[in-house]
Design a protein around this nucleic acid. Structure first.
Lengths: 339, 339
DNA sequence: CGGTAACATGTTATCGGTAACAACAATTGC
DNA sequence: GCAATTGTTGTTACCGATAACATGTTACCG
């Protein structure tokens, strides 16, 4: 057992260097796998480092090199299978690149996002990935000054901050509405969040309204499911609150699959037949929509791909290649058994 | 517009200090809200910092103070409502403490966990929160050497690494089995992951077996739903693969609510009545269990509370108070309409 | 009015790596 | 056999904030 001058102090490269009688610089090179270091020397250093219980200090590296190795990501909520899947896509695609994701959730609030971005920027992230295209002016200012790549995902913003990997939520609804109209459904209702907090939800709502108008359907009725994020429970409660007269509508277009699932099961409890008495559609191709009996008509989104493509953009940008400014990953209408 | 010596260089405290003709130390104090700084001075400094677009460098702070401000967290998967909820509980409880969560997911693999822990430790986290109580020897060694608080959550390990906030997965199943037995169900099957990867799932399985044995029920049949994480789809596929003979069992105990939901809907597709032909139970009180019609019999876990209590432990430990070594948050059997 | 306390600000050294450059040894080519 | 090249290791300075200590200034007291 080697004597330790101060048992509480951390083991540094200097300690390893002393132990192998080399300069810290060589240790640094060896531990990072620099080819110029003699293989034998490298092995000696690595062994000694392990023996001493040396732990590399990424903070010091980040400080010295002014590269944090972080990519900051904001999500509205991590408790959402689709956003979680995007995060996973990012993580997987970035694995091995030496980049670490720094996650923050905004709770669907642009003010919270602003605060979060401010916090995250103090960690010197090498890039910032924001879910959604709506931000406060202050957020835009912060990001403009930050001089790092910014990617907005899950939307196709009118005024992008930088790169974009997303799809049109409004367009995605057009197919759903067309499908419903083709089945003879005319009286549509839209079930979604009330507030303007959920901009993706609002875009879907507007898409439904526009598509219905274009097809000559009567005005779409809005049903309030509460504050974003709207859950299964919210969908069920909204339908339960209305009662059997929900079937006065021909079709209930829901902002997401969980909401649609809640609505579907509330309808069942009311003794209504879906789609006989009322058609129901969702959004996002969540597992619950595919497994549910009946299967819920939905729109498939490419949550994982959004993350993977965002990672591609980052790789390109970091490599100095120019990456596409806007990547539209699209979405696909998925007819189910509820419409 | 002030002249900038080098337009690409970042704005530092020194720059702010020069601009207000003060020392960097005073700027440092002012920006951190040190009371000893004259309020007027503080305001001047803050204004000038904002004007110059100064962004605080947490990396430099972390380096200088040797306190990263990070708490590392490992989750088996973030695409799981319960783990996501625990993360949220942690985030909320830690908000305002100046601590930032550093998240990594292990994919239900202890080897991946080992690698992840190694990575996370290089960031000098001030504490480490691990989901689960099973780790490789190397992981245990790393954590032993790290000399930071470690909290294991979601389990009650036999040999804890440090603090524990969890519950007994095995005990939780006892009530479920007792309930099923009281309803006259004797032939039980357990539907869960095959591999030993999901230790919590295995603990539940063992709990079912033990409880059944204790009540004098015949041996429990194991049904393989594939590799962890087992999803709704896996649950549905497993039942579909077996077909109507699944009703030869009296009750199907599922490792989680999503699996139970998949099984339930697969049964429906087979024309089986639940619970008439077959009782089904789940675990975790996921939304889908509560909203489903019929409501799925389940076990309520306190996912959010696990996060919140873990944060409490951290606060205590950092404050130098001694925190409880093991916090059992328990779980509650929740009868539903599927049993 | 002198001395001490309370307040406000400044000085110095440092956290642990690594870029840039320097230096020396071993090898190669002619 | 000597210059040029390649391979390997070392030296120096620095990234940006802040703990610890020092210093100057004003307020207050008997």
């Amino acid at each position: 057992m080697t004597t330790n001058p101060d048992s509480t102090r951390r083991v540094t490269m200097r300690d390893v260097a002393r132990a192998v009688d080399m300069s810290p610089m060589t240790v640094s090179r060896a531990l990072r796998g620099d080819e110029t270091v003699n293989p034998k020397t490298r092995a000696t250093i690595r062994d000694k480092a392990a023996e001493l219980g040396y732990v590399y200090d990424t903070t010091a590296q980040a400080f010295r090199t002014q590269k944090s190795g972080f990519v900051a990501v904001t999500l509205p909520s991590i408790n959402n299978a689709n956003f979680a899947e995007t995060f996973r896509g990012l993580t997987d695609a970035l694995a091995g690149s030496g980049l670490q994701l720094l996650l923050g959730s905004t709770g669907y609030s642009v003010e919270k996002e602003e605060q979060l971005v401010g916090q995250l920027l103090t960690r010197n992230p090498e890039a910032l990935i924001l879910t959604g295209g709506h931000h406060t002016d202050e957020t835009r200012k912060l990001l403009g000054a930050a001089r790092i790549p910014v990617i907005e995902i899950w939307d196709l913003p009118d005024a992008p901050l930088g790169h974009v990997v997303g799809f049109s939520n409004a367009d995605a609804m057009a197919d759903t509405v067309a499908h419903l109209a083709s089945k003879g459904h005319r009286k549509l209702a839209f079930l979604g969040a009330s507030a303007v907090s959920d901009w993706r939800g609002a875009a879907r709502r507007d898409g439904v309204i526009a598509a219905a108008a274009k097809l000559g359907l009567p005005p779409v009725t809005m049903i309030d499911a509460g504050q974003a994020p709207v859950s299964m429970r919210d969908g069920a409660q909204a339908v339960a609150a209305i009662g059997p007269s929900i079937a006065d509508f021909d079709a209930l277009v829901c902002v997401s699959d969980p909401v649609a699932f809640g609505a579907l099961n509330a309808c069942r409890r009311l003794g209504l037949d879906v789609p006989g008495d009322l058609a129901i559609t969702g959004f996002g191709q969540f597992d619950v929509a595919m497994v549910s009996h009946p299967r819920i008509t939905t729109v498939a989104v490419h949550a994982n791909e959004i993350g993977a493509r965002a990672a591609d953009v980052l790789r390109d940008v970091f490599a100095g290649n120019n990456a596409p400014q806007v990547i539209d990953v699209g979405s696909e209408f998925q007819p189910g058994e509820t419409s």
